[in-house]
Write a protein that binds this DNA or RNA. Structure first.
Lengths: 249, 249
DNA sequence: GGATTAATCTGATCCAGATCATGGAATGAT
DNA sequence: ATCATTCCATGATCTGGATCAGATTAATCC
């Protein structure tokens, strides 16, 4: 068997569970639990369950009863919405330590988004009520979760601004910068976006089509701003992309 | 002097402060304070300051140091972002009892949006740190604020989906439904959107142009779905707009 | 009431990017 | 190694809605 040419190094097929050690390590690493002591984490750990998923599996669908909150222990998950026209809208791309799913009781009892595994995934789940009890019991944790949600709201507003006022190549440049910032790892081909990422998915993130993404990406490569291949992209010239995206701050 | 023809009934010019009675009444009415007892509200009231604004005044600009959180006591405020191309993006339209401004310490220390008065406004402000202290002290309040921010995030995601996948007339129909739901008051001309609302502003909310809004609005009126005039719109056929917006749930 | 100003409407033109169509290259299966 | 599949690149065409340009109408001012 030939070697794959992609520089992305992520397990993409087998589902798997995580060891108890990893679970505790993950929970310690979760930003909003970082202030808790080890015994508290161990106690909280009891309330979590573990679920494994393979590439392409759906963790849940939008419209399902929103009973659980998820934290990624390993792998990558995308949050998306389906539209009546069949086009998907990719809202977020989540990495280990991030939470998603059923958080609020106020906004109804079903998930608004669909969550799909981009790699093999190990996720920790907790019932919404148990999680809310933790937030109430440890106000500092609650405050950190609030800050995270606020940051996501800010990011969503930035996306709305992009969609409202920027051209396709600007939105793509902006999205690549975001992804590079969140998922980028230094690599010989450039700042490699460590997630399998197709033209289709990039189109779903930027409200464009795969054809447009392909054209823009090709141009970026010709201009020497990125390196790319089948399902991978690496940024080599951040400042050029920043200029295109008109990020001046 | 002739009477204005607009059916919208909102004080649009003079700034004004609110009486102490109104302040307490407002704070009691704020959803996330509703669980607090009167003495607690009175104590919290001490930490708020009062600011009056007239139509068009800016409460703050994006980029200003984010020191205060605002709660509207009276009037209407719009949250917007400026773009390099000069086009504004209108992100939210706030009514009495809603909060905005500096909430999180995590996401930097400046406002991400600009807040502008659509009417005369009386706003209550509190320092970010004092507000966060309240949230920590009363975890139930914190949880309610978290739910509100989560609901806003969900709304922002819905907007992203709209912008990504729907046509201009669908987005306009959707926005009118949203506004009617939030600001609509029963009136002889229909479900009147109780806020001065120009074609320009509607364009800034829907990522279109004033010309397109005008054409679509005119068509909606010809179709008998709405009544409209200079800076006002009233919805007469919600279900028709829902069908256009493809809101099937 | 008439003038002035600002919001709105409407037509004509144009273009970014969607859509349609096809060929090529990387991957996985056998 | 070969084939089948999936992803990607690129050309040709089409179109929704932006842009440009006036014409109308409502509100305010005097």
């Amino acid at each position: 068997m030939r070697r794959r040419k992609t520089p992305v190094e992520i397990e993409r097929t087998e589902p798997h569970l995580c060891s108890m050690d990893l679970r505790l390590h993950i929970l310690h690493g979760v930003p909003f639990f970082s202030a808790l002591r080890h015994e508290q984490i161990e106690e909280i750990n009891q309330q979590f369950h573990e679920k494994g998923f393979s590439l392409g599996d759906f963790l849940y669908y939008s419209g399902d009863p929103a009973e659980s909150l998820y934290i990624i222990a390993e792998g990558r998950v995308k949050l998306l919405r389906h539209t009546t026209s069949g086009k998907d809208v990719l809202l977020d791309l989540l990495i280990p330590g991030e939470f998603f799913g059923g958080l609020s009781t106020a906004s109804g009892s079903t998930y608004f988004e669909t969550a799909q595994a981009l790699t093999s995934v190990c996720a920790l789940t907790i019932s919404r009520d148990n999680f809310r009890a933790i937030l109430t019991r440890y106000p500092d944790v609650g405050m950190q979760v609030l800050d995270l949600v606020t940051a996501r709201l800010e990011a969503a507003h930035a996306t709305i601004q992009q969609l409202s006022s920027q051209s396709a190549d600007q939105r793509i440049a902006y999205t690549l910068l975001n992804l590079a910032g969140k998922l980028g790892e230094t690599h010989e081909v450039g700042l490699l976006i460590q997630t399998p990422l197709s033209r289709d998915e990039l189109a779903d993130m930027t409200a464009t089509t795969p054809e447009t993404v392909s054209r823009v990406i090709s141009q970026f490569q010709r201009d020497g701003y990125i390196n790319t291949g089948r399902e991978w992209i690496a940024v080599t010239d951040l400042s050029a992309l920043r200029e295109i995206a008109e990020i001046t701050f």
